Simulated assay, not measured.
Amino acid sequence: MSKIKDGDRIMVGGFGLRGCPDDLIDALVASNKKDLTIISNDLGSPGIGLGKLLSNNQVKELIGNFYNWNTDVAEAKNAGKIKVTLIPQGSFAESIRAAGCGIPAYFTLASAGTELGEGKETREYNGKQYVLEEAIYADVALVKAEKADELGNLVYCKSARNFNPAMATAAKYTIAQVGEIVKAGELDPECIVTPHIFVKAIVKGVN
C-alpha cells in the first residue's frame, strides 16, 4: 500500500465479489488512504469488498457502471459526498483496454443520444452518431489471479478473469493478489493471460 498515495486513481478488478482482490482491498482500507478515485465495474455491497472503502470515507470519485447492488453509493452521491461517473459497461471495458494499448480515445455507438453521452464529442459515420470516449488510466491497479510464477505471469480462474487482465495493463503500477506462486517455467505458456511485464508486485492472498 506504500505505492498508493492520497488522491490516486485506483483500478480494482472483479465483477461483484468474483475476481475481486479482497485481501488487497482490506489492506487499502487499513491504510486509510484518502480522496481515492476508484475505477471498478461496481463497488461491491454495503460494507463488503469495495464497499468498505466507501464506509470508511476513503472515496472521492467512482468511475464504473454497476452500482445498483450497493445502495450506499446512491446515498453518498445524492448527499454530495462523492462524484460518480457512469460509463456503459462495454465502453468501460474498452476504455481500459484502450489505455493498455496506448489508444487515447475512440468512437462508439454506446450512449449516443442518451444522458450518458451528453457533453461528449460526437461524429457521424454511415448515417449514425458515435460518441467519443477517452481511455481510462490509473496510478495503481489491484487485480486478482488464480496463480502466478515468480516473474509475475498470471493465470486466472474462469469468470474471475473478468476485468482483471485489462486493468493490469492500464496502470502505472499493478499489484496482483494470487492464490498460488510457482517457480518460473512451471506455468503452461498457453494458459498465461497477463505477461509479467505488466505486473510490478505479487501478493500471496488468503481469499
Rank of each mutant, 00 (worst) to 15 (best):
E180P: 14
N57W: 03
T114Y: 01
I25D: 06
V203W: 03
D72C: 06
K204A: 07
N65A: 02
K120Q: 01
I202M: 06
L116Y: 02
E146D: 14
I192M: 08
I25L: 08
A160T: 13
V84K: 04
S45D: 11
G14A: 06
K83G: 15
N57R: 10
E121D: 10
K81T: 12
S111P: 14
G117P: 00
K172N: 14
G47N: 06
D72K: 14
A171L: 02
R9D: 07
A27R: 15
S45E: 10
G16P: 05
I63E: 09
D35C: 07
E150V: 12
T85Y: 00
E118W: 00
P88G: 03
E118S: 04
A76T: 08
N126G: 10
G102C: 06
I175R: 04
T122N: 07
S40D: 06
N41V: 13
N164D: 13
L17A: 15
P46Q: 01
V73T: 03
I25V: 11
K144G: 15
K83P: 14
Q89N: 15
L62G: 03
K83F: 10
I202A: 05
N32M: 08
T122I: 14
V73Q: 02
G179Q: 11
A148D: 01
M167R: 03
K183N: 10
A105V: 07
Y137V: 11
D42S: 13
Q177H: 11
K33T: 00
D8Y: 09
S40H: 08
L154Q: 05
D6A: 04
I136W: 04
L154G: 04
W69T: 14
G13I: 00
A145H: 02
K3F: 01
M11K: 08
M167C: 00
N164M: 08
I103P: 08
E124P: 02
G64H: 06
D23S: 06
G14F: 02
L132A: 13
V29G: 02
V203S: 04
A105Y: 10
K77V: 14
V182F: 12
R161H: 07
E133R: 01
T85P: 03
E134F: 04
N162L: 05
S40Q: 04
T169K: 12
K204R: 11
V199Q: 00
G100K: 11
I175E: 01
Y106P: 13
W69A: 15
V131Q: 01
I38L: 05
A176T: 14
